[in-house]
């Protein structure tokens, strides 16, 4: 085997490199992203052209095609801002402003991320607690589980602003109400995922612990909890994304003071489309980072558990 492999190294390496580049995800993703940006540019040109034409007519200007396209991509308040306009705005508001300044997008992202994370942590804790109860108490499973599933079909996000205002009226203000919305949204996926996860050990493993006369507490920590971790991380990825969405939506009714949601709202009030898009991209970046963070934690825990399993066996 080894001699065969070494006999013709050159013939295997060359197709290997090419096919690896083709079969990997980096190049395809790059192509797709570049494609999206290209479509964006084309859309920006076509969508902004009507306004540009009327501008030119008023100024009685007769621009060449190149000049025309250039000006469609650099309008003050375009229908669809071009990617480089948004990128400039992002760069400007992220790197050229003090973090504490209200003009800094980092500041606004921070305002949104604080309730996102707090709500996510509270939601995860609540979700795990509920799932544990549901797995151990039959009557809770039978009565609560259908409602948990049904409640997911209700557009809770749509009433988030109202919940904020009600809490405001009771005197709960600041970080907590937004975090409560995020918690409310994120505990559902955690509960459903963890019920599945805590039930995931197969019968043989459960029977083994029964033969040891293990208490349900011991069964929980030694079997159910470790085997539920993959499920926990999967649902945590969903939960943290939805938690961010909750925090953004929760900002809408508070009068557009601070936060990514407030930026969206004020951008739409004043017709500053560049502002909306840069807030949107920032939100997308935050979501990607949060999900990636959970992914890293997932990998870390898996590796540790993998080592443990190997050392034990």
């Amino acid at each position: 085997m080894t001699t065969d492999a070494m006999a013709s190294p050159s013939s295997t390496v060359r197709p290997g490199l090419l096919s690896r580049a083709l079969s990997g995800t980096f190049l395809p993703v790059l192509v797709v992203v570049l494609g999206i940006i290209a479509i964006w540019y084309i859309a920006a040109i076509s969508m902004n052209s009507t306004f540009q034409r009327s501008l030119d007519a008023r100024a009685e200007a007769t621009p060449t095609t190149i000049e025309f396209i250039e000006s469609t991509l650099n309008q003050e308040r375009p229908v669809l801002p071009s990617p480089h306009q948004v990128a400039e705005n992002l760069w400007d508001t992220v790197f050229n402003k003090k973090i504490s300044s209200k003009r800094s997008l980092v500041y606004h992202a921070g305002v949104t991320l604080a309730p996102t994370l707090l709500g996510f942590l509270m939601g995860t804790a609540l979700g795990i607690l509920l799932a544990t109860i549901i797995v151990h108490v039959l009557s809770m499973e039978k009565s609560l589980m259908p409602w948990i599933i049904t409640s997911q079909t209700i557009p809770i996000l749509a009433i988030a602003p109202m919940v904020i205002l009600v809490l405001d009226a009771v005197g709960i203000r600041g970080l907590l109400p937004k975090a409560l919305i995020s918690m409310y949204l994120s505990f559902f996926p955690i509960t459903v995922g963890m019920v599945k996860g805590l039930r995931s050990p197969d019968k043989m493993h459960l029977d083994l612990l029964r033969t040891y006369n293990a208490s349900s507490w011991q069964t929980f920590w030694k079997l159910r909890w470790p085997s539920s971790l993959p499920y926990l991380f999967t649902s945590m990825k969903v939960a943290i994304a939805i938690s961010l969405i909750g925090a953004i939506i929760a900002e809408l009714p508070t009068g557009a003071v601070a936060g990514l949601g407030a930026r969206l709202l004020s951008g739409s009030y004043y017709g500053q489309t560049v502002l909306i898009w840069s807030a949107l991209l920032m939100a997308a970046f935050c979501a990607a980072m949060l999900v990636a963070l959970v992914g890293v934690a997932d990998k870390w825990v898996r590796r540790r558990m993998g080592e443990k399993v190997e050392a034990g066996s």
Binding site: L157, I248, S268, T273, W277, A287
Partner: peptide
């Protein structure tokens, strides 16, 4: 799927 796509709502209302 993980992005706060709902944020495009104000843009769509403008368009």
């Amino acid at each position: 799927s993980a992005l706060p796509i709902i944020g495009v709502a104000p843009i769509m209302v403008m368009w």
